[in-house]
Structures are given as C-alpha cells and as structure tokens.
Write a protein that binds this DNA or RNA. Structure first.
Lengths: 339, 339
DNA sequence: ATATAGTATGGTAACGATACCATATGGGAT
DNA sequence: ATCCCATATGGTATCGTTACCATACTATAT
C-alpha cells in the first residue's frame, strides 16, 4: 500500500526546513549540495511521492490539458492525434485528460465545464475527420486549439491536413510515371475540406503537367459497393484510365477488387494510389498501397505546442501530407514493354 | 477569462457559512431548501466553478484513474478499450488519464510512478493485443485491473477475449452452412492466447459436428503476401476447402484477393469468416465480411468496473466474442444448385 | 417540565505544498 | 572597517475545500 509521507517528514529526516525540501523538489537554486543530497536520500528512503493536488492548489497550475473529441467509430486510426498530443504534453510535464463527446452543443458545453472544474490549462478539440466545427461559447474561458478541424469564424488556432498538396503529390507520382488518364474516385460527403481539397490538388497537378481535366474520370464513393461500381464504370470508358487515385485507402480496397475481377493486375496493368495511409489497410492490400499520409500525430502535437507556447496568434496551420511509396505504382512505359 | 470565485465568495453573497455552501456542493443533508436555493443562485450568478485540487487535497480522493497502455500502431482499433474504460469511469464520476508506454519494465515503472504522484485511485493496464504481461512491482501500490492481457502469476484481475468460444462460433456458422472442408489460416505469432485459443475453438467445433481434423487445412499467416500464398496452397489441395476461417479480418483481405485471382466468388463459390470485426476492413471487403467481434469496449469497461467495485477477488474474466453476420457465408447446398 | 433525537447552521483546523519574508553568512568593492 | 550582494536557510501564512466540533432550534416522547 502507498505510504504517504509529506515534505514535513522528509524535512525532519533530512534535518532541514520544509522550504529547502520544496526547493529541491522544484530545482530551485540556493541549496547547498550537501543538503540537497540529504533531502534526496530521505526522499529515496521513504519512497516519497509528491501530492500534486497540494502543489496545484498552492501554485495554481495543474499540468492538465483537456482533450475533447467526437468519436466516430469508422476512423479508429485517428488515435494518433491523441498520441501526438500526449507526447507533446509530456515534453512539458503535462497530462492529457481525454473526454469523448457526441456532436451536440450542450453536451460539448458540459464536457468543457467538466474540464474547467479540473482546472485544465487549455483545451484541445480534435475531430475524427477533417471538418468545420461549431463550439460553445464557454470554450473561450481557456486557451484552445483545434486539431483536424477548424472553427466557423476562424476564431481559434487550428491544425488541419494539407489536403490539396497531399492530393497533388498522389497525382504527381502517377503523372511522373507517365500516366495521363488518371481516374479519381473522390471521398464524400460533398463540400467537405477533404473532398474539395483533394479535387483541387488533383486538378492542379494535371494542369501543371499539361493534361486536360476530364470530368468523365471523376467518380465519388461512399461505401464499398458504390466504389466498386464506379471503378467498373471508369474501366468501361472508351478511353479508360491507366491509373487510379483513390480518395481513401479504404475505398482503394473495392477498387483493387474491381480491378482483379476485370483481370487487371496492380501495378503491372494499372497503377493505384490512395490517401490516408491507414496502415492496416495499406499493408494488407496486395500489392501494398502507395498512398499519402494523413498527419494525425503531427496535428495533435501541433495543437498542444500551440497551446503551451502562449503565442496567441490565431492561425490555421496546414500540415504536410507526405507521400508513402509502396508497390502499387509502376511506370507506364515499362508496362508497355512488359506486355 | 475564467473568474475564480471561491466558496467564501458564494457564502458571502448567499449570506450563509462556507460549510453550508460545501454541503450544497456535495449534496449533504441538513440544509434548508431556502438556503440551498440562495447558494445555488449565488453560484449561478457568479459562474462559480469548484477548485477540484483543493477538494482532492482535503478529501484525499481525486476521481482519477490511470490508464496505461502499450501502443502498437498496427492495431489502432483497440481505442475501443479506452472508450469502454471512459464510459465506465464516467458512470462513477471519474476521469481517465491515458499514458502510453513502450514495453520495457523501467518505462512502465516510471509511468506508474507518474500516475501515483497524481494520486490516481487505480490503474488499468491495457494491451493492444491479447497477451501475457509482466508488470513492475510498484503497481501493487494501487488497485489494478488488466484489459486484453493477463499477468504471468495471475496476481491481478483481468478481462480477456474468449478466443476459443469466438473461434468456435466462427467455425460453427460455416459448419451449419454445410461446409466440412474448412481451411483455417491462423494468426501468428505462435503460442499466443489468440493463436492457441482460436485453434482450440476450431477443433472443438469440428469435433462437435463429427468432422475429423485435417492438419493439411491449417495455415498460418504473418503478413499479407504470406497469407495470399497459404490461401493458394490450400486451394490447390486435391480435396480443397469450400470455406475459409481467417485468423483476423486483416488477413482475410489477402484471402479474398487470392480467391478472386483463382476465379472464385465469395460467397457463391466459397465462404469466408474472419475474426476481430475490424469494421473499416470488414465493411470494405466485398462482400462484407462475416466475422467475430473482439470485445474491446467491454474489456475496458469491465476493468474499470472491477477497479471501482472494491471487490478484491482476482479473476480472469473471459469476455464473449459475438458473431457478426454479414455477406461472406452461404449454404453449401445452394452452391451446388447454383453452379 | 425535561430529556432526546433529528434538523439546521457556522466557525475553525486541517490537507500538503509553495510564496513570501526574515535572517545569516562569506566574500569583494569601496 | 563598512557596505553590498549573492548565496543559503527556515518560519509561517496561504491556496480552496472539507472534516470536525460546537451550537441552536424544533418536535416528540417521557
């Protein structure tokens, strides 16, 4: 069981004042090496543990950061946001309290109240997919930063994925491999930053490489079967694509299936690149999927660092989505030579 | 910004003693309705928020539960353990502090020390895959429960998936559909509770249905390509399986691919069932995968409830893995009729 | 009338740490 | 010799809350 000694006990044992013990605890100057050592020894011998509640009460700093998140079961991999936040917090000796909430305002408001009672020094709000959020007013009681989302009125600093550049990269790797007919099955729902940004990136890459945009090559996908059908539709075009850019790694699964059923091999006959780098999916597709990384970890870390920096500038940070190359892309020329 | 009023301010405004305010705050008896209302009003008007640090200091109860977990990036869906723990904690007005650690003892020990300093009332240790864990001695300083793992010497209560019954169910649904040749590609690494338990469940189901166990029908899989090859090997047997039981949903991805490449349709020509119910995978396979649910949420919730129950009996709770039926299984007879 | 128990209320001492103030010592500069 | 400043040390008030004790008032039982 946990013996609970206090600094008084330590002070007595080390034959010093409590103030000196406190100084040792907080690495303050003006303690002789000799006494410092005596205190350290005493703490060691008694297995002393600070009562952070008392410390916090006196010094009005809890070392707690609230982490609010909406939970959407279909994108479980976004835990990395939490990991990133955690690691960034740990760098500053802080802890994160995670609270999941549904989407409605009163519930979020209550959760914020809950966190404020615990004297959190700041709140991170993280969304499981990139979107706009509307937060209750009581959030302004405490420094706040957003991860994977942004506020309607741009009143809060936020970290979001740079969807456009990511999609640009995904398209570019195909373009560089010589593909000019690139099918793009975009994520839905419509008008989300992901859908819009990825389409812009795709178009910009095309335009940079002098390839005209062909409306026919664009599909959308919400669930697997739909995506399978869209892939088939593109394949049946009179001038079909030689490569696919799949809006998410998950939808790439159905694209792979449709390709297999059409007797097409990836990447020999047709190249594919995804988006998200959802590793359990990307690594279990055969061949492994070349894709673009959603920077979950970085967004979480950025938000916490922003909070703790004390810098109040409200910015939206677009975080890079690097390309992760695996085996699903091959050069168009070599395809012709091989077949 | 957060005004920080104290119960003294409330007391003054409501014209009562601080004790009365405290009583209202904690729902103690012996406060007249009239004064209670005055206090409530005052709190409302001043937007009062308790300082939980002070409360905790005085009453020696923090309402904090430590949640320790090893992080393995490949199984991100185990977040559900955290969700379950969180919800169970919320039922008792507690919060969870999540700390991720690597696997080595000193690091875990340090993390426990970290949690103890924050006066957690208990610690949950959760593993990302079902396994035996070895925990440092300082964990005994505080009530502990394990989720998705168990301790070497069975000295701690734990919740684990009932792998055997789960695998029994997966096999049974195939057996009930008339399949007698069932290929089983088991998870690795060897000698894990998952591998052993699932094999036992498979064998027991076979035996219950009077089907002899055929060593040839067993494969193992570690990564996608390996699993693809194992599937092919089984397909080339002179008496090949008409159904597959895939050790995890992820490996089912490669099995589906191998089946497609062999010109076999799921479920018309061959049935498949998985294990884990990793929804992002199961729902993006075509047809959607029938599988068995790993009870992450329930394990997390069980562990917290066990902690808070105060009941010190050390038990290992095997939690049920229910079958989730989707579209990847069909009756063998109908196969013959159709083809 | 008086004892007794339940209800209602407030004052004050903790909880364990740190902030602040007071004090002491030992050089180096004047 | 005196002053000043950096270093070193400890006592004590204090943070915001609850536990504990003391005190009243009321209603019922004796």
């Amino acid at each position: 069981m946990g013996n609970n000694y206090t600094i008084k006990d330590i002070a007595k044992r080390a034959q010093v004042g409590t103030t000196t013990v406190s100084r040792v605890l907080n690495n303050h100057p003006y303690v002789s090496d000799e006494k410092r050592q005596r205190v350290l020894n005493a703490m060691d011998e008694l297995n002393y543990r600070q009562n952070l509640g008392a410390k916090w009460l006196r010094s009005a700093s809890t070392g707690l950061i609230g982490f609010l998140t909406d939970e959407v079961a279909t994108t479980p991999y976004a835990v990395d946001i939490i990991r990133g936040a955690q690691d960034a917090a740990a760098e500053n000796d802080m802890v994160i309290i995670v609270v999941s909430v549904g989407g409605d305002l009163p519930e979020i408001e209550e959760a914020i109240e809950f966190l404020l009672e615990r004297q959190v020094m700041g709140i991170i709000y993280a969304a499981m997919y990139h979107r706009e959020v509307h937060l209750p007013d009581n959030i302004t009681n405490v420094p706040t930063a957003l991860a994977n989302c942004f506020s309607v009125d741009a009143s809060l600093p936020s970290a979001v994925p740079d969807e456009e550049t990511g999609a640009y990269r995904a398209t570019k790797v195909l373009l560089e491999a010589g593909h000019t007919r690139i099918g793009f099955i975009n994520v839905i729902p419509p008008s989300t930053p992901a859908m819009n940004g990825r389409l812009r990136g795709y178009q910009r890459a095309l335009s940079d490489y002098g390839i005209p945009f062909d409306e026919q090559l664009i599909g959308t996908s919400d669930f697997a079967l739909h995506n399978y059908n869209e892939t088939q539709r593109l394949l049946n075009l009179k001038n079909p694509p030689t490569a696919f850019f799949s809006g998410t790694d998950r939808t790439a699964m159905a694209t792979y299936a449709a390709l297999r059923d059409a007797g097409l091999r990836v990447p020999e006959d047709i190249s594919v690149v995804g988006f998200d780098n959802q590793i359990d999916v990307a690594l279990n597709l055969l061949p492994n999927l070349t894709t673009v990384q959603l920077p979950h970890y970085e967004m979480g870390a950025w938000a916490v660092r922003k909070l703790l920096s004390g810098d109040n500038e409200i910015i939206q940070e677009k975080i890079d989505c690097p390309l992760v190359e695996r085996q699903s892309v091959s050069v168009l020329d070599s395809v012709n030579i091989q077949s």
